[in-house]
Amino acid sequence: MTNEVEISDVMTEGVIAVEQDKSVVEAAQLLEEEEIRGLVVVDNGEAVGIVVCRDIVYQLVSEGKDPSGHQVKDIMSSDLIVAEEDEVLNDVAMAMVRNNVSRVPVVRGDMLVGILTQSDILRAWPGFAEVIGEEREMDAPATPNPESQDGYCESCENYSEELENINGMMVCPECK
């Protein structure tokens, strides 16, 4: 069923945007006023990036930098994925997962008409959370087997925190 849902059916219409030359403080105030977590960044009306609360915290505040001394363009994500309003939800949702983005501006031709967020997708497609989890699990690095473990040595039967597998037997350093 999700294969046939168009973005326009689930997106948030209207876009709260901020000019790229505005200060980060102005962007933060707009985020608070609108009670949202992300803004589309525009330059002369054209979408050029996204700025989210996390950008402000991770790129400025956590590093002790003063947000009032920075412009939105300094911290925005500019690798922008944009969707046409008639695109299929499943395709765009999977592109969001592959590119690790949480929101995508939606256009009709050259006009910005909305935004698609992970929350919008979850309302329309509750199974999306499972897809995200599986994608992240597949991207996670493999956990190597530990080189040593604790237990009882199969040779001397003494307890050790440094057992190693030697020829199929778990043995302590002394018996190795």
Results as ranks from 00 to 15, higher is better:
T2L: 14
N3L: 15
E4V: 13
E6Y: 14
V10Y: 13
M11Q: 12
M11F: 15
E13M: 12
G14L: 11
V15M: 07
I16D: 15
A17T: 15
A17S: 15
V18H: 09
Q20M: 13
K22L: 08
V25M: 10
A28I: 03
Q29N: 11
L30V: 05
E33N: 07
I36E: 08
G38S: 13
V40A: 00
E46A: 02
R54A: 04
R54Y: 06
D55P: 03
I56C: 04
V57C: 00
Y58A: 12
V61E: 06
G64A: 05
H70N: 13
V72C: 02
M76C: 04
S77V: 05
S77Q: 04
S78L: 00
D79Y: 08
L80M: 03
A83I: 05
L89S: 02
N90W: 10
N90T: 15
D91F: 02
A93G: 11
A93H: 03
M94W: 07
A95E: 15
M96C: 09
V97N: 07
V97M: 06
V97P: 00
R98T: 09
N100F: 05
N100I: 06
V101A: 06
V101T: 10
R103P: 04
R108F: 04
G109Y: 03
D110Y: 01
L112V: 07
V113I: 13
V113P: 04
T117R: 00
Q118G: 11
S119V: 11
D120H: 03
A124Y: 05
P126E: 10
E130F: 01
E130S: 07
E130R: 09
E137V: 03
D139V: 02
D139I: 02
D139W: 09
A142P: 00
T143R: 08
N145F: 07
N145M: 13
N145K: 11
P146T: 04
P146S: 06
E147S: 05
S148R: 04
S148A: 09
S148H: 11
Q149T: 13
D150G: 08
D150I: 00
Y152T: 11
C153T: 06
C156P: 06
N158Y: 02
Y159G: 04
S160M: 00
E161H: 10
L163Q: 04
L163P: 01
E164P: 03
I166Y: 11
N167Y: 08
N167R: 12
M170G: 00
C172D: 07
P173S: 10
E174V: 11
